[in-house]
Structure formats: structure tokens, C-alpha cells
Amino acid sequence: MKVARFYAPGEIKLEDAPEPSPGPGEVKLRVRNCSTCGTDVKISRHGHHHIVPPRVIGHEIAGEIVELGEGVTGWSVGDGVQVIAAIPCGECVECRAGWLTICPNQESMGYHYDGGFAEYMIVPRKVLKVDGLNRIPEGLSFAEASVAEPLACVLNGQELAGVGAGDTVVVVGAGPIGCLHVRLARSRGAKHVTLVELNAERLKVAADLVQPDAAICPAEVDPIDEVLKLTDGRGASVVITAAASGKAQEDALKMVARRGRISFFGGLPKDNPIIACDSNLVHYRELTIVGANGSSPAHNKRALELIARGEVPVADLITHRLPLDRVLEAIETVADGKAIKVTVEP
């Protein structure tokens, strides 16, 4: 079979490998879709401290069960499934409290275990242990199911920020995550959603797809002034920074309403994670700032349901489909910022 293995920054090789066999408690998949994201770009260029090469990467996985390991029950050959990316231990203090997204023992597909840029792969027993193998609802394509993983992360972020009926929401960043935030906010009852993106071309592509109520390009206008104008001077009730930008986080403090919530959804570069925060704005306006880290197995299940019910459509966000032998092209397509969602179809 063919796999795409990461060896070092700038060195991902398409190779032949023997088909794996599932051990006890494991499941073997024929990978049908493994979608790509900005994390794959970062891994390809800089590596990751949790990845010990060589490693098959790819973590937005959907496929078909082709073999069951000893002791696996409740599944059948031919079942279509989606696989969680982040694997909590299920046993630590945080997991027992229900905070699976911040499990200190978390492992990940494509990092600690071979991922989905392969024709076949093994779902480890730890995934099944935490109920992280999810049946794809009838009528949903493998490509759509692969987008459940990023949507699950978006769902976690919006739950933490309390996005709900009547909210005015600003989403900063018009990549696939920003587009999912726009659509999920709408499905959760937000009355007005604004999309902000520095790249005018990317903003146009995204806005044409997800149709926000307003689109703002900070390269052309002051985004803080524009948000205040749109909200009669109050500011947005929720601002979500779905971009790795300290400036976006700083701006969020100035465009959010009193008692507003800010989600620092996108992490910052590890060599520049510090921002200027006017603590008095937080204090006197009673602002809430929340982080968001990945998703739980339950978020993945609910994301699949949201997609299947049509509450958060994703099919039109998949702008590029490439075979496994063009996986490097897929990653570079994500990097150049012109695509929304790129999926690999082994």
C-alpha cells in the first residue's frame, strides 16, 4: 500500500508499505478521505515535538472498516466510520471531571499513531476505549465525514464561548475553521455574523460560500470601527479569533461588547505568544476570555450529526480533492491560502 511519511521538516515521502494487521481491540480501515489543515502545513515545515519520525501523518480521517481485531464488538466489516484525532486517556482527574479536551495524557492520530495519509490504517484500541470511533450516518459521504473533526473543535470553542440565540458574532479568519464558525454560529441562533479576514481574495471566496451578514477586510478598513458601526457602537457579543494572530486577539478586546465573550480559538506561534491585554477593559466591562483546545469524542459524534442533519453544511467547503500521490500538493494548497478545505482521497 501507499503511505505519506513525515521524516523531517521539508521531508515527507510517498512510500510503499506493507498493509497493517489489527491487534486485539483494534480496527483496520480502508481510508476513504483524510482532509488537511493548517496543522499539516506546520508539521511539514517545522515538525512537532510529539512526532517521532518516521510517522504517517493526517488526522481528519474517515474510512471503511475492512478487518476487526480480536475482541472488537459492535462493529462490522463495511461500516463507514470517522475517527477522532485527539485521544484522551479517560482516566485522569481532568477526564473524570468531563474535561477530555485538556487531558494531560492526550495522544493524537498522526502524531503518536500512524494517521490517515495512507491507503489502510489501524485505529488503536485507545480510540475505541474512549468511544472515539463514530459511525457515519446514512447518506453522508466520507469526505463530509472527514470534516467532522475540525467542526468538533469549532463546536467545543462555541460551547465554551456560549454562542447562542440573539448573539452578534465576529469571526476573525476566513479559512476552513472560520467558515465552520460562521455556519455553526448561525445554527446556534446567532442573529448577525461578521467575517473578518486580512486577505481580500480569501475573504471573497469564503464570503461567497458561507454568506456572512457582513465581511470586513482589515487591509482596507479599520475592523474595530466597522464592527462598532455594525453594532450601533456596542460591539459584538462574541468575538472568535480563528487565526494565529496576536493582533486579532488584541483587536478582539476592543470590538467586543460589555459582558461580551472572546474565544482565543487560534493558538499563537510558540516563539511569539504574548499579547498586549488592557486588563481594565476586561475588568470594567466584565469581559470573559476563553481558550479552546481541540475536541472530545462526544464533540465528534455531535459534529457528525450536525453535518448529517444539514444544520452545518460542509460539502461546498471542500474546494479541492486530490489523490494520495499528490498529498504534498494538497498540503501546499492549504499553505497558499487559496483553498477552503482540501481533502486527500487514498
Rank of each mutant, 00 (worst) to 15 (best):
Y120H: 11
A165S: 14
S108F: 15
A185S: 14
D167Y: 13
A206Q: 00
I122E: 02
V123W: 11
E138P: 00
G189A: 09
E159N: 15
R202K: 11
V163F: 05
A148R: 10
C217G: 03
A97D: 14
L140D: 06
L140E: 13
P176V: 15
C92S: 03
T101H: 04
N199R: 07
E201L: 09
S141D: 11
E107T: 14
L184D: 06
F117R: 11
V127H: 10
E144T: 05
G178W: 02
V221E: 14
I224N: 08
V210F: 11
R186E: 04
N105G: 06
P124S: 04
P218T: 06
R188C: 04
E226A: 15
V127P: 09
C95P: 00
T231E: 09
R234D: 14
L180S: 02
C153T: 09
A190W: 10
I102T: 11
C217H: 02
N199Y: 04
G175Y: 10
V169Y: 12
A185Q: 04
V154E: 01
S146P: 03
C89H: 02
C153F: 09
A145E: 07
K129S: 12
P137V: 03
A174N: 02
V93T: 08
N156I: 00
I122W: 12
A185Y: 13
C89L: 09
A145W: 13
V130G: 02
S108Q: 13
I136G: 12
C217S: 05
V196I: 15
D167S: 13
L180A: 03
A152D: 01
P88I: 04
I102Y: 02
I177C: 06
G178K: 11
C153W: 10
V127K: 11
A206P: 00
P137I: 04
A148L: 05
V163Y: 07
E201P: 00
P223T: 03
G233H: 02
E226M: 13
V221F: 08
E226D: 12
C95A: 04
G115M: 06
L184C: 07
V171K: 10
N105Y: 05
S187T: 01
C95T: 03
L155E: 01
D225K: 15
Y113F: 14
V163H: 03
T168W: 14
G175C: 01
I136R: 08
G166H: 11
Q211M: 09
C153I: 06
E220W: 12
